[in-house]
Amino acid sequence: MRAASRTGRSRSVRRRRLAVTVGCTALVAALGTAGLLALNHDAPRTPDSDSTSQARAVPALTEPTAASPAATASASSSASAEPPAAQPSAQPSGRPSTSTPEIVVHGSGSFTTATANGARVGSGSVLRRYRVEVENGIGIDPNTAAAVVQGVLSDPRGWTADKRDSFQLVSSGSYDFTVKIASPDTTDAICATDGLDTQGEVNCDVGKQVMVNSKRWLTGSPQFDGSLDDYRALIINHEVGHRIGHGHETCPGPGKPAPAMMQQIYGLKGCVANAWPYDANGSYLSGPSVN
């Protein structure tokens, strides 16, 4: 009887121990689940949100070194790309230090025509009437720009010295070509209509349009060791030179003036920076032709 009683008590104790163990295990599991649920409720992170968070984090780390349009615009013409190693500086050499102009990379696409008109300049029999337009929103005044263009084309060192061509600024009526100053993106788009790739850097002559990249107009070129006014003169003389039939030329020799039809933005090759097709005596500043 005692043996049976002890056996019964032993079995009862084992049952109670087993029940306690199972109960504790269940309690721990319940607390663990509750803890995880509490954590997820406090900061829910689904697989989608994890992916989104990581996708946003990577660009934030790499953007400062990416060649974004905004970076290019803050860094610093015929249709060809500027050499990668020769990025325009905020202040090209040979110029006094001033504040860096803002370059609007992507303009509105709409233009305002300068209201100014001018007298015919030059004695040449071939009259070329032109107007000046500036893209809206790029910070350049159309009438101010028109005065600059008119000053260049009326200068005795300009194309009127050929005794063949004369020019007249007009704001309405018939015209032979338009000088358009536009943002880099807009310049690219218009030049591309004739298959030209200006890569946001340079100017072009397309259709009835002389396209001037506003970056060049506002910052010049690091290769041109002269004033910004002279570089603007070079832009106009070079592109209008194409319009009246001149091709590219290169440096005629070390120390000589670079031809206006030379792509001086790519380097002077030993020549001296020069904005004008003729000198003060009316002699054409030429160089070997470039095919």
Rank of each mutant, 00 (worst) to 15 (best):
Q91I: 14
P92A: 00
A85P: 04
T100F: 02
S74A: 15
T72P: 00
Q87E: 11
S76P: 02
P101D: 13
A86E: 05
S80Q: 09
G107N: 07
I103T: 06
T72M: 14
H106K: 14
A79D: 13
A81C: 08
A67G: 04
A70F: 02
P92C: 00
T72K: 13
A90R: 12
S74D: 13
A73H: 02
T72W: 09
V105I: 09
E63G: 05
Q87V: 15
A90I: 04
A71S: 13
P83V: 05
S78F: 10
T98N: 11
T62C: 03
P69Q: 09
A66W: 02
E102L: 07
F111C: 01
A75K: 11
T100I: 08
F111Q: 00
P83G: 05
F111I: 00
A60K: 14
S93A: 13
S97F: 03
T100Q: 12
P64I: 07
T113F: 03
E102P: 00
T62M: 09
T62F: 08
T112E: 11
S93M: 01
F111L: 06
T65N: 02
P96C: 04
S76R: 12
P88W: 01
L61I: 11
S68V: 09
S80A: 14
A79E: 08
T65D: 06
R95E: 04
T62A: 09
P101W: 09
G109T: 03
P88T: 13
G107Q: 10
T72E: 13
V104D: 03
T72I: 15
S68W: 07
H106Q: 13
T100D: 15
V105C: 01
A70M: 04
G94W: 03
T113A: 09
T100S: 10
A67Y: 05
R95F: 03
F111M: 02
S78W: 06
P84L: 12
A79C: 15
S110M: 05
A60Q: 13
E82K: 12
A85R: 14
A60G: 08
P69N: 09
A71V: 08
G94N: 00
A70W: 03
A90V: 11
Q87H: 06
S110W: 02
S77K: 01
A86K: 10
A66F: 04
A70Y: 03
A90Q: 10
T100C: 01
S76A: 15
S99W: 03
S89D: 10
A79P: 08
S97V: 12
A66I: 01
A81I: 00
S89E: 10
A75W: 02
A75F: 04
S68L: 15
P101K: 04
P96H: 11
E82C: 10
G107P: 07
P83Y: 01
A60W: 01
E63F: 07
P83T: 07
S108E: 09
A75Y: 04
A66G: 07
S99Y: 08
F111E: 01
I103E: 07
Q87D: 07
S77C: 13
A85W: 10
V105K: 05
S68C: 08
T113L: 08
Q87W: 04
A66C: 04
P88H: 02
E102V: 15
P84A: 15
A90P: 05
L61D: 12
S76I: 10
S108R: 09
G109K: 03
A66E: 13
S78I: 06
S99P: 08
G109F: 10
S99L: 12
A67R: 13
A71D: 12
P84D: 12
S89K: 11
P88S: 06
Q87R: 15
S76Q: 11
